[in-house]
Amino acid sequence: MKWILSSLFFLTISSTAFAAVPVVLCLGDSLTEGFEISPDTAFPALLDKRLKEKFGPKAEAINAGISGATSASGPSRLKFQLKSPKQLTHVILALGANDGLRGLPVAAMKKNLEDTIKIAKENRIKVLLAGMKIPPNYGPGYAKSFEEAYKKIGREQKVAVIPFLLEGVAAHPNLTLPDGLHPNPKGHRIMVETIWKNLEPIL
């Protein structure tokens, strides 16, 4: 694998470094991956289509979603993506849902997300943080502190924040899969609108 990677580096090193064309990395979990649905119906693919419509064929949205991933995977996965010859301009950071579902400490999640954001900033990549909410059954205290963590990071790190990635999708049976949790393709079409609304201003 290493040799494959290194050869790719040599081949594409010349690609335009300062183009204004947005290359958006969608770094997330199952919500990004498109859990149990075809990958071309998940929001990164829909976003990719829209970017290409607006900015031409060189614009791109990359699906870097991994089902089950927690915020702890953020820093190393972003570093891995940085090795790619693609010149990333933006990252949509959509991690944390699994931290919440597993009841992990919010403070740790906040730190993981901040670490990821710092790496992005160091590489002059703009960050859009996708906020999450946790179902009310987790208890009012936890749900509240979880939700507020995103706003806090936005304020402290001065990055754009989507208040809730699943706005208008969560808890709608016709927009989610039978598990009541993951959005179906229809849900992803709503998600891409939510993202676009927040992403467009920073493009």
């Binding site: 009841g103 059954n137 205290g141």
Partner: peptide, 21 residues
């Protein structure tokens, strides 16, 4: 059936008691 963060009921109310899933 569901999962929830559950905490002990304590008298001292200043610091919220630790909650676990």
């Amino acid at each position: 059936g569901w999962v929830s963060m559950v905490a002990a009921v304590t008298k001292a109310s200043n610091v919220p008691p630790p909650a676990r899933l």
